[in-house]
């Protein structure tokens, strides 16, 4: 967004297609090829998780919550990773966990962005009392640690998956609100937003067509980070026995249920915990690289 954007020769140059411009796919490939190994690692891991989450019913050797053997059977043989405390196949539950845990965390993050992002843009565009009221409300919500607030709300509403998603999404949307409001404020003062206002466009149109495309990069990066945070919070709550409830296969509660095995030197409970860690590491690596790319040559 430099001064030259306003000079008259710019639109002419943009009107004619540049010679030798590559197709979209080729451009994406070019960027990817130059990505550092950490980013590649992250992308591959995320792809793998998606594959497992989508293909869970076909990949898992046993159903999600059926008792197929004795409790705590060892690895190998009929059950590749043994069975859990009730005799359900560990590997199958790990695979279904990818679908449940990651799916719920993703839904929550989406909801949080719809809420926080929407309100943030509205506050930035409208300003005035709406901005003030929302800003102060968010200040107060953010002055209580998120996990503590979630615990209070869940103790009152009772813990079910819907409650979990709504509570975490609302609490997390405060951060999204802050970010989207502050980045949108830089765009709201632009001439083209003023022009859209003057020609009588409504608020949703300005939000979607004028502001949003210009603040996408920071929001996408934030989405990755918020997803990690939400994912870890939900896992922590499930681990504490207050999140996703059995018999739904979920990584956090799987760690809790099988934790006793650790004292016998069995690594099985570490698998779901490791699955959580691996995905967050992968997302973080990709976000790191993405931030580096979109922020230009800051360092």
């Amino acid at each position: 967004m430099t001064e030259s954007a306003h000079t008259s020769d710019r639109p002419v140059a943009a009107a004619q297609p540049l010679p030798g411009r590559r197709s979209r796919r080729a451009r994406v490939w070019r960027v990817l090829r130059k990505a550092p190994p950490t980013a590649w690692f992250g992308l591959i891991v995320i792809g793998l998780y998606l594959f497992v989450a989508v293909g869970a019913p076909w990949l898992a050797p046993y159903p999600e919550s059926e008792l197929v053997g004795g409790a705590f059977e060892p690895w190998g043989g009929q059950f590749l990773l043994g069975t859990d405390q009730l005799g359900r196949d560990m590997l199958s539950r790990l695979i279904y966990g990818a679908r449940n845990t990651v799916g719920i965390a993703f839904l929550t993050t989406m909801l949080s962005f719809l809420l926080g992002g929407g309100l943030g843009l509205m506050a930035a565009i409208s300003g005035g009392w709406l901005d003030q009221v929302l800003g102060r409300a968010v200040d107060v919500l953010m002055s209580i640690p998120q996990l503590i607030f979630a615990l209070v709300l869940l103790s009152i509403l009772g813990s079910s998956i819907v409650n979990l998603i709504v509570v975490i999404a609302v609490l997390d949307s405060t951060r999204v609100f802050r970010l989207s409001r502050s980045v949108a404020q830089g765009v709201v003062v632009m001439d083209y937003v003023e022009a859209a206002r003057l020609r009588g466009e409504k608020l949703p149109w300005i939000m979607r067509r004028e502001i949003l495309p210009n603040i996408m990069p920071p929001l996408v990066a934030e989405f990755g980070l918020r997803f990690c945070f939400v994912f870890l919070t939900i896992s922590a709550l499930s681990f504490l026995g207050l999140g996703i409830k059995p018999p739904t296969a979920d990584w956090g509660s799987m760690v809790r249920d099988n934790a006793a095995l650790i004292t016998y030197g069995d690594v099985t409970p570490l698998l779901p915990a490791g699955a959580i860690a691996l995905l967050t590491v992968a997302v973080n690596f990709v976000v790191d690289w993405f931030l580096h790319k979109t922020s230009g040559l800051r360092e």
Binding site: S235, A236, V255, L270, I276, V281, N284
Partner: peptide, 15 residues
């Protein structure tokens, strides 16, 4: 440090 941040506390604890 990125790996450590990304791991849930209970993962580190059980390791």
């Amino acid at each position: 440090s990125l790996t450590s941040i990304s791991s849930p506390e209970f993962f580190l604890a059980y390791i």
